[in-house]
Design a protein around this nucleic acid. Sequence first.
DNA 1: CAGATTAATTCAATCGAATGAATGAGGCAA
DNA 2: TTGCCTCATTCATTCGATTGAATTAATCTG
Lengths: 227, 227
Amino acid sequence: MTNPLSNQPELDAKQRLIEAGLEIFGAYNLEGATTRQLAQRAGVNQAAIPYYFGGKEGLYLAVIRYMLQHKGAQVLPVAERIRRKITGRQLAPEEALALIRTLFSTIVSVLLQDQATTTWARIIVREQMQPTKAFDIVYEQLIRHVHEALSVLLAIVLKRKATDPVVILRAHTLVGQIIIFLSGRETIRRRMNWEKYTATEIKQIQQAIDEQLDLLIPGSESEGRAL
Amino acid sequence: MTNPLSNQPELDAKQRLIEAGLEIFGAYNLEGATTRQLAQRAGVNQAAIPYYFGGKEGLYLAVIRYMLQHKGAQVLPVAERIRRKITGRQLAPEEALALIRTLFSTIVSVLLQDQATTTWARIIVREQMQPTKAFDIVYEQLIRHVHEALSVLLAIVLKRKATDPVVILRAHTLVGQIIIFLSGRETIRRRMNWEKYTATEIKQIQQAIDEQLDLLIPGSESEGRAL
DNA sequence: CAGATTAATTCAATCGAATGAATGAGGCAA
DNA sequence: TTGCCTCATTCATTCGATTGAATTAATCTG
């Protein structure tokens, strides 16, 4: 169960603790994870946690920052590219929808791709319901940018004002179509007989979400979606 | 913070513990909640927990069962009514969509209605990511029926087979549009400046979801939605 | 380059605090 | 009295953090 990490056998204790933290904090929560678990999983002494991170919570924040930097690098460029296109000129609804599709494809990949990102996503969902100071970082540096870009795009698609509360709410519902594959994991596991999300499953999820996005512009059928 | 429950001052210790458990287990999780918290909140001695429920976990299961009975009574009749209509005759897509709308309206009410149900919903979302034996009960007695009914209805709307995996996946995404208001709570709080879901907010959420559902049948605009 | 000194890191052992549960004495209505 | 229930107290366990010695790596010295 909690065997020491045997891959990358020669990393310094600090890095090993962060990677162990990713697994443990994903499986349990901040208070549910014990320093003994973390230390054993990292193959490191328990005292290394206060030594390097000031304590368990410090390690937790370090894990958050580590993955934020890692995954933000995949998502933020897409959001930034969208932001520039938006401010440039008036987009047609079809163009805006295409950008939403690109954004969602990226998000699905980042959130469901591999085991590490899945546990990372679980941490975020937990933070949504019981925010700690870690959520501030994630929200300000990642979530906010993505959501604002999405809302503007959706306003264009729906031909409404970006400040319309219902538009923002519908942006949330769109995101909800992705997040459900994390927050409703066990239900999906039972309904689909899926043990985990491999490339096959992710492709089907992408298709389902794409079909839903198609609806936003009447008569437009997605064709030749390139992944 | 953890004042004893002062409403309904004369309930027996058993019932008071269940209501306290609803709040505490919603705010924290099973292992995060302490028996001292639970006892103090219920205005009851700590020893009453092992006495009545065999232990903390027993109380947790009792809370699940209590709310399942309570909330299942609101949702299951709707799902059952749908099931009968489905097996009766072939439904038109418009009829099926109307039933979906009814079902979703009920779910939104039940999940977001008041504070008690919100904490209950939080418990379920947590169970989705870290299922305990409690999830078995909730899934078999509630979630499964709703999801199966929804999938069949959606298949009719989309004019596809109910066994098509993508149809089931899209049923999940539809549910995700509701669940996001629980699992993405903190993001929504910041984006909308909503502190809690009162009747005003729920009405707007209903509208956003309704608009999304409208898309499922091209050209159909919702009119005079009766709650 | 060899040996000594220092700083950085890791370790086993232990601490006080908090936890869930158990205990047995008492209360109280029937 | 009897049987159900509540109470203050206590127990063993587990938690995160600390401690100071031991080990390693880096730097300095002659």
